[in-house]
Design a protein around this nucleic acid. Structure first.
Lengths: 192, 192
DNA sequence: CCAGTTTGAGACAAAGATGTCTCACATGGG
DNA sequence: CCCATGTGAGACATCTTTGTCTCAAACTGG
């Protein structure tokens, strides 16, 4: 297998390691490199062969989270149909990445240096644009800024991911609970 | 001042240390004991005289957060008036503690052992009871569980605290943004 | 079967944080 | 003024995590 280099097997292993690291760090964000390795079913040495260090691992998780989030935004077709439906599609598409996003959202180490990934800005811009579109069309209220609605979406996804993980809400309700609360709030509607 | 013991000066110093530690750890949850000490304007030795170690400090912050939260619940008089107004009062009263709560909310170390503070349960019960009251009175929709609404309130407060800290939303809008989103959601009302 | 590659296990030192201790200094009451 | 108390600065050992290395074993493709 000398000619394969990084093309084939390494890639799928790397992805598997990344996924299990995401799952573990979502539950316990201070997990040791050794715990991450064991969770992935590999040794610490092999983990180090994939990721130069803890920082590289977290950066790779950041890139993965951003990529999955952007893929979700693409799949949700935010420009089509009503803004409400676009938000529902967005929450549905982003659900599988919610745990990872929740971990990254609280990893404030990622946002303090200078070399912060501009992918976050791209995501913010696209999501805020969706809320702005909803405001322009009269669907959404205008006293809540698009920046705050974007932030609230992140926060609700993180809360939802944790609540599901601790069994406080059912996993199947994740999408509905987040989208409905974000769109409609807790108050009952007089006439839908 | 030998006869004073722990009664007077120690107490206010301890409180001041606790407050600055809360402010610092909210921004950078991995701050060193030395950084915590410097932020409080004291030396690491003195910090250690107040709190036996990092764990003791975090536990003290947990107790402080729970106490402030319970005081806010008391001040908000959750049983009086409409549930919506009670939620607005709750958010307003809890705002000063939002940063500390956001820190504790993501300190999952607090919730994994067996000796987790039952204060959180007390808070959950009281807040969930408020949402349940709103549902029973017909004010709140019933397809969002009280447990999820409680969780969402925590998540929105954390998001709000971070968004304010990073300058993405104005501090003066904190209460309005959180309460209005939680109650009414992003959709515009036809007839208020 | 064989050769090259990858892996796991462990040893090892470096780095960082923590807990403990000592000692000099300041401060405030008597 | 004097003394007791609290404080800051620093030294020190310890512990954990990390990064690096080696080597034997397992595996794979030919």
């Amino acid at each position: 297998m000398s000619h394969m280099g990084y093309g084939c097997l390494m890639a799928v292993d790397r992805d598997h390691v990344l996924r299990s690291a995401a799952a573990l760090l979502t539950r316990k964000s201070t997990s040791t490199m050794d715990e991450v390795a064991k969770a992935a079913g590999i040794s610490r040495a092999t983990l180090h062969r994939h990721f130069a260090g803890r920082d590289a691992l977290v950066r790779a998780l950041e890139a993965l989270g951003i990529a999955e989030c952007e893929a979700a935004l693409d799949a949700a077709r935010l420009d089509e149909g009503s803004a409400s439906e676009a938000v529902r599609r967005l929450v549905r598409e982003i659900e599988p990445a919610a745990g990872l996003l929740a971990f990254l959202y609280t990893e404030n180490q990622l946002f303090e240096g200078e070399g912060q990934n501009e992918g976050w800005t791209r995501l913010d811009v696209r999501i805020a644009a969706l809320f702005r579109r909803g405001q322009a069309s009269g669907e959404f209220r205008i006293d809540l800024t698009p920046a705050w609605l974007t932030e609230a979406l992140y926060g609700l996804m993180a809360s939802g991911a944790w609540a599901v993980q601790e069994g406080r809400v059912a996993a199947k309700d994740f999408t509905h609970m987040i989208a409905e609360l974000l769109l409609g709030g807790a108050l009952r509607r007089e006439e839908p």
